[in-house]
Design a protein around this nucleic acid. Sequence first.
DNA 1: GAAGATTGATCACTCAATCTTA
DNA 2: TAAGATTGAGTGATCAATCTTC
Lengths: 164, 164
Amino acid sequence: MATPQRRPPDPVPEPRWLTADELDAWRAIAKLLGRLPTALERQLQRDAQLSYLEYHVLAGLADQPNRSMRMCQLAAMVDAELSRLSHLIRRLEQRGFVRREVDPADRRSTQAILTDAGHAHLIAAAPSHVDRVRDLVIDALTPEEILTLKDLSNRVIGRIEGAD
Amino acid sequence: MATPQRRPPDPVPEPRWLTADELDAWRAIAKLLGRLPTALERQLQRDAQLSYLEYHVLAGLADQPNRSMRMCQLAAMVDAELSRLSHLIRRLEQRGFVRREVDPADRRSTQAILTDAGHAHLIAAAPSHVDRVRDLVIDALTPEEILTLKDLSNRVIGRIEGAD
DNA sequence: GAAGATTGATCACTCAATCTTA
DNA sequence: TAAGATTGAGTGATCAATCTTC
C-alpha cells in the first residue's frame, strides 16, 4: 500500500495524445488498413477461391526457377509465421495445388512445390487480381504519388522492424 | 459449344500487368498493410488483452455523451459487419466491459452501453496504444507527410467505396 | 541446444439462416 | 417486406507443445 506521505511527482508522464489533425489523419490511414485488404480478399475469394495469403504463396513459388521453396523461406517472403504457413500449405496440398518433399540437403527442411494444377490456377487468378490492384491503388494515384506512398510505407515499416 | 469456324479476336484483353516500378511500390504498400495492423494488435493484446477492434468499440462508446450506441451505428463506425460486432459485444459483455439494452424508441434495436469497468479498462489501455501509434506512424513522418498519407489514403478509400 | 516444421486446442471471423419489430 | 440483431456451423489464425535433424 502507498504511504499517506506526499511523494515526488509520479515518473509516468502524461501520454502525448494525438492532436486533432493527427487523429484525423490516423483515422483515414486506419480506415485504409481495414478496407483495402478486405476488398482484395473478397475479390480473390470470389474469383479464385483463394485467400490473399494463398495467392501470394502460389505466386512466390511460381517465381522460383524450380517452382519450389523451403517452408521457412516462403514464410519470410509472405511475412507469415511458420505455423500458419504449415496449416495453409496442408490445405493447398489437399486441393492439389502444392506438394511437399523433404529437402535432401537438410532433412529438417521441407520444400513446398507448386504443381501444374496450382500453376494453372494461379495463372487463371492473376489477371482479375492485378486488375483490382490497379483499379483500387495504382490507377487511383499518379506515378509520383505511388512513389511517395512507397516511400512513406517503407519509413513506417522501418519503425515497426526497429521496434522489437 | 464453340463452332469450328474462325471467330473474331477474343474480347478478353491482355491484363495490364504492373510495371517493375509499380510492383515495387505495391510490394511496399502491401507489406505495410500486413505489418502495421499486426504490430498494433500485438501491442493491445499484450498490454490490455484487447483486439484492435475491441479497443475501438470501447473508444467509440466512450466518445458518446451517454456512453452508448446502437449496434448498427457502432458497426458502421468501426467498419465491421453486424454479425461480427454482435459476437464481439457478447464477449465484452461477459468480461463486464459492456452491457446491452433494448432501445425503447425502436424495439428492434439494441443499445450497447459502456460500463464503468469498461471505461476504466479503456482509460488504462489508451496511453500505451497512443504511444505506439505515435512511435510507428505519426512520429515516423513529418506533419506534411502525414497530411499526404491521409490524402492518398482517402483517395484509395474513395475507389474502394466506388467499386461496389 | 537451436533450427525447421508440424500438430492440436482454442478462439475469432464469415456466411447463411432465423427471429422480432417496424 | 425490410431493418436490426442474434445464432450456429464451418473455416482460418494463434499459441504453446512436440518432434526431428543439425
